[in-house]
């Protein structure tokens, strides 16, 4: 399976992002990894480089509950971007609230909803899905 060029994690849980990045290395998930601790950080990074598809991530793993700008608010900004590149967004959250899952279904930009913890198999599945599309 072809490894991704750039992956992006947006999650305020620093232990989680550390462990997940470790796992990604193990399964050879991506060449480059971007980590942001809330939505606003990510938006601030992405906005100036929208014109340069080669430096935009292929996959975004997005947490929902975050300070300052949460996953939903990030998505609301993100969908406004006109991007010349296919970016796959996965929700990665601890929420089992049906309201969150129902809300996620209304966003076309979201490909899947993963509930934490994330296993190596989950990462493999993501990789497969992205390379297929």
């Amino acid at each position: 399976m072809k490894k991704l060029d750039i992956a992006c994690i947006i999650d305020d849980d620093k232990i989680f992002t550390y462990v997940l990045s470790k796992q990604m290395k193990v399964v050879d998930f991506c060449e480059n990894l971007l980590v942001f601790h809330n939505g606003l950080e990510a938006i601030k990074y992405l906005k100036p480089i929208l014109e340069s598809p080669e430096v935009l991530p292929d996959v975004i793993l997005l947490d929902l509950n975050m300070p300052i700008m949460d996953g939903w608010q990030f998505l609301d900004e993100f969908v406004k971007f006109k991007v010349n590149k296919k970016i796959t967004v996965y929700i990665v959250s601890s929420s089992i609230d049906v309201a969150d899952h129902a809300k996620a279904a209304t966003y076309k930009a979201i490909s899947s909803f993963y509930i934490k913890p994330i296993s190596r198999q989950d990462l493999a599945n993501m990789l497969e899905q992205v390379s297929l599309s």
Binding site: D13, I15, F16, L20, Q23, S95, D97, P117, S119
Partner: peptide, 16 residues
Amino acid sequence: SHNLRSHTGNIQMLLD
């Protein structure tokens, strides 16, 4: 559920 899952998820992943 959310808060316990966040922590236990991390523990599970760390142990793994």
